[in-house]
């Protein structure tokens, strides 16, 4: 009944592997588990999400049990534990952004993409996620795509950004 994952499926590219080793070396002797969050980010950057195979790979790299990785990946909201579209739009839904019209702009965004929160467009271009305060409340409404912050959103601005990203 045990469904073991295919261990050889995921590996870091050479430059990421180098980066991973550099990260692991940052921590004191025996504390390499500290590298877990950064390595999961690295994995997600490469794979688009934190796949079970990838998590098992990270577990082997750090010499920890796979469950220790799953526990962490499911705790933190930035890790996508399911496959996602090419662009993940992480939209701030918290109070201060809402005061700046965040909810109206969000309705527009959903309409524009034709999807609801948590869904991916049929062409696989966009996944929509709601997140909490992104520490940019004075510049709200705000969403984030990968590392980039898009601020002072309006319906028009959202259309422009989606057009830009769709290219």
């Amino acid at each position: 009944m045990t469904t073991e994952t295919n261990n050889s499926a995921v590996e870091f590219t050479p430059d990421r592997l180098e980066k991973a080793n550099e990260i692991i070396a940052r921590y004191p002797e025996g504390k390499q588990k500290s590298a877990l969050l950064p390595l999961l980010h690295l994995l997600q950057e490469q794979e688009g999400w934190t796949s079970p195979e990838g998590m098992d790979y990270v577990a082997r790299m750090l010499d920890i049990q796979p469950i220790e990785v799953y526990e962490v990946a499911t705790f933190y909201t930035m890790y996508h534990i399911n496959p996602v579209g090419k662009h993940v739009i992480e939209y701030c839904r918290t109070g201060p952004c809402c005061l700046m019209g965040g909810e109206e702009v969000y309705s527009h965004l959903k309409q524009r993409l034709g999807i609801e929160t948590g869904q991916t467009t049929v062409d696989g271009q966009f996944t929509l996620k709601e997140v909490e305060c992104l520490a940019a409340c004075g510049m709200g409404p705000v969403f984030q795509v990968r590392e980039k912050y898009y601020m002072h959103l309006t319906n028009e601005r959202v259309d422009e950004i989606i057009d830009e990203l769709s290219k």
Binding site: Q65, P66, I67, Y70, T74, F75, T77
Partner: peptide
């Protein structure tokens, strides 16, 4: 070897 744990938040 622990194979179960607390998932989610």
């Amino acid at each position: 070897k622990r194979v179960h744990g607390v998932l989610g938040r």
